[in-house]
């Protein structure tokens, strides 16, 4: 947790990180990393959320994530997309906070769990929305993709975090 960060600095920093995360979301709208696999995304924006979670704490990270999702949803996805993003974003965030607080998991491990949680929450919402349990057939793909993308983002966050000396 930051020691003596005044409120203005904190607000600016959070706003800056929201912008960064929003740009990452936009990059993924323009250049999907896994086209052809519905629901599978790298989740670049989670890079920012993850670093914020470890460097600024859960409260800031949650706000950054929430504002990013609302903005990205309204800008790129529309009301439906927003609902999925919210479900995925909030559930994965809760899972990540819980795992981080146990102290037993590394950053890539926490991120991996977050990736899987994100995908499963979205699948659950999709099943509710279209009222069709057959969507369940897609869950192995979503679990595997959550593992892979989550670990990649987690490693990215560890590497990136080394160069962010002044972020705290």
């Amino acid at each position: 947790m930051p020691l003596r960060i005044d409120r203005t600095k904190r607000l600016t920093l959070d706003a800056f990180l929201v912008t960064l995360a929003l740009i990452f979301s936009y990059v993924e709208v323009l250049l999907p990393f896994f086209p052809g696999l519905p629901g599978v995304k790298l989740g670049l924006a989670n890079l920012v959320v993850l670093i914020a979670l470890y460097r600024l704490g859960a409260k800031d990270a949650f706000l950054i994530n929430l504002v990013r999702i609302l903005l990205a949803g309204l800008l790129f996805a529309g009301a439906y997309g927003l609902l999925y993003s919210l479900a995925g974003g909030i559930f994965s965030f809760l899972v990540m906070v819980v795992l981080k607080n146990t102290g037993h998991f590394s950053v890539p491990g926490v991120s991996m769990a977050g990736g899987v949680a994100h995908n499963l929450a979205q699948l659950a919402v999709a099943m509710l929305m279209v009222q069709n349990v057959n969507l369940l057939f897609y869950y192995p793909v979503l679990v595997l993709s959550g593992i892979v993308t989550g670990i990649l983002i987690g490693i990215g966050a560890v590497l990136l975090s080394k160069y962010l000396h002044r972020l705290s």
């Binding site: 037993h104 998991f105 590394s106 890539p108 491990g109 991996m112 769990a113 593992i147 560890v158």
Partner: peptide, 10 residues
């Protein structure tokens, strides 16, 4: 940095 719990969860 990877821990035992990471591999168990994986």
């Amino acid at each position: 940095i990877l821990k035992k719990a990471d591999f168990l969860l994986l």
